[in-house]
């Protein structure tokens, strides 16, 4: 029987240092193609250290590689910052729900990311750009704490250079060499130009940020059933058996992490649920 608790070893092909504490690891899956949907995550196992849930940050059209962007903050993820090509990680997945790439067809798509929340949204952005004609306006709003904590900087520059995509990058704390906007993502969202009544908003970031983003989007006239957010909860198994990620009746690893806002608005308002 296939054992859902046991990871499959995969070899690191490429390591890109994004920021002081964040790396993007590309695993080689050419021997056994890995299919996933934008927004899904994997359990990533480091030998001898443990396993953590990490969203997939690569292109869903490239099954020969599997990409994760990892911030080194705990005993499992910190050693992952030091991995080099040829090292091996264990993978279980993919798990969870996906961004609404189908539901968003024909609408303006507003992507609002905060901090490392850009990583789970990157496959969504790749999908939007790969199928550019299926969507109307595309707006990417990305907020980071400081300029040096932004992910995918080269890619952001490249996207900003495109004519068919609006990119607004904002930071919470400016520095002397930063000439972009300083302020929270909601400020950038409020200034963005799109048709609120025919838009899809997808957001991923800290819960507080997402709450303010949704608040702003609703104030601008976006219906609640056109907003999707990705939730984070403690996860140990990702298969609905360990109980950790429960949120009301849901196991976030199965019914989430990506939720349509009108399904969770009432729960989101409850403290410590």
């Amino acid at each position: 029987m296939n054992d859902p608790w046991v990871p499959t070893p995969m070899t690191v092909r490429e390591v890109v240092r994004e920021t002081a504490d964040t790396v993007t690891l590309t695993l080689d899956t050419s021997a056994s193609p890995f299919a996933f949907a934008p927004g899904q995550f994997n359990m990533v196992y480091l030998f001898g250290q443990g396993e953590v849930p990490i969203s997939i940050s690569g292109h869903a059209d490239r099954p020969d590689e599997l990409v994760h962007t990892i911030r080194g903050v705990g005993p499992v993820t910190r050693p992952m910052l030091d991995l080099v090509p040829g090292d091996v990680l264990g993978i279980r997945g993919p798990f969870g729900t996906a961004w609404p790439v189908e539901e968003a067809r024909g609408t303006d798509v507003i992507v609002v990311a905060g901090g490392i929340g850009l990583a789970p949204l990157r496959p969504m952005i790749y999908h939007l750009l790969a199928n550019r004609r299926d969507y109307a306006r595309i707006v990417l709003i990305y907020g980071a704490r400081q300029p040096d904590q932004m992910l995918f900087v080269d890619e952001l520059h490249h996207w900003r250079g495109r004519f068919d995509l609006t990119v607004e990058v904002t930071v919470d704390q400016g520095t002397e060499d930063w000439f972009g906007p300083v302020g929270v993502v909601t400020r950038s969202l409020a200034r963005a130009r799109f048709d609120a009544d025919d838009a899809t908003v997808v957001t991923c970031g800290p819960e507080v940020m997402m709450r303010f983003v949704v608040h702003e989007a609703v104030r601008m006239g976006v219906p609640q059933d056109r907003i999707w957010a990705s939730m984070e909860r403690n996860m140990k198994c990702a298969i609905g058996l360990c109980g950790h990620c429960q949120w009301g009746p849901d196991f976030v690893c199965k019914q989430g992490p990506v939720y349509r806002w009108d399904h969770i608005a009432h729960r989101f308002a409850e403290k410590e649920l």
Binding site: V6, P9, T11, G48, G90
Partner: peptide
């Protein structure tokens, strides 16, 4: 015990 893993040359092997 969910599994036991032993180090191999470049990675690890899993034993159920």
């Amino acid at each position: 015990r969910l599994f036991r893993a032993t180090r191999t040359e470049r990675g690890f092997a899993v034993e159920k």
